[in-house]
Design a protein around this nucleic acid. Structure first.
Lengths: 131, 131
DNA sequence: TTTAATTATCGCAATATTGCAATAATACAA
DNA sequence: TTGTATTATTGCAATATTGCGATAATTAAA
């Protein structure tokens, strides 16, 4: 009786989990705009990537080895963060000898700026309680 | 000879990993402002949380059960996302009977708006190559 | 062609996030 | 007090992210 119940529960768990993708974000529940907005935020969701972007905005260009010195992270780690930013489109790299020179992608940068700006619409400055 | 080498390598790995915090973000390498900016971005880095904020901006107030219907995620999952947004300070909840009524925290919302806006400084619209 | 310099990728371990069922906690009504 | 409705928390599994050593790939110089 109790045994049967346990077996049944186990089967349910197995069925549920074997239908896969457990633990991953359910992107299909949301609009493309919402998923894109979240993806943009994710690209900014690490202090190293914030630091990289701030540095590029201030200095215009920078090569990987300088980022490694500036950030204090291992070369492999920095390379990965740069890859993510490049994948998000917000920076671009051009090969310069044995180095790679990175800079902001101005077009995508402006898109980010515009989308974040329109996301943060003005809200009424109501009091402490909502309802 | 080879054996000694292997043992030494193992020891190095153990020492390195036992100094702990492996896999976690190295926040101490960055400024408070950079960590804060990344944390704000992280709060927005999920489509469900984007959807929640958009809904609140549009409708002003909303209770948990409505979010559950709107989002199509399980109640536990929605509750967790609301908790994260509350922890980030960007929303606030007030108990209304057996429900909890959520709304944007206008003060923090404006802070987010201002900080994202000042993060996306204007960049020169240079060409394809950086250097 | 060999060597040096620089960057990208692989493989692994640790931590973090996502999602949900089950259950606990809370507030109201009967 | 007991039951009902709603929300929060717990515990677990799956996936994602972070970090880095080792190594491969790429480019320029010798």
């Amino acid at each position: 009786m109790t045994e049967r119940f346990v077996v049944l529960k186990l089967l349910i768990v197995i069925l549920r989990c074997s239908s896969l993708n457990m633990g991953a974000t359910k992107t299909d529940l949301f609009t493309k705009e919402q998923n894109d907005m979240a993806a943009m935020a994710k690209a900014l969701a690490h202090p190293a990537r914030i630091a990289i972007l701030e540095y590029l905005v201030a200095k215009n260009v920078c090569i990987t080895s300088t980022f490694v010195e500036e950030l204090g992270l291992a070369q492999a780690t920095v390379s990965q963060h740069l890859k993510e930013l490049k994948l998000a489109g917000i920076i671009q790299g051009s090969i310069e000898g044995t180095s790679v020179c990175y800079c902001i992608n101005p077009k995508i940068w402006k898109q980010y700026k515009a989308l974040f700006n329109s996301f943060f619409k003005d809200v009424a400055p109501n009091g402490q309680d909502c309802c």
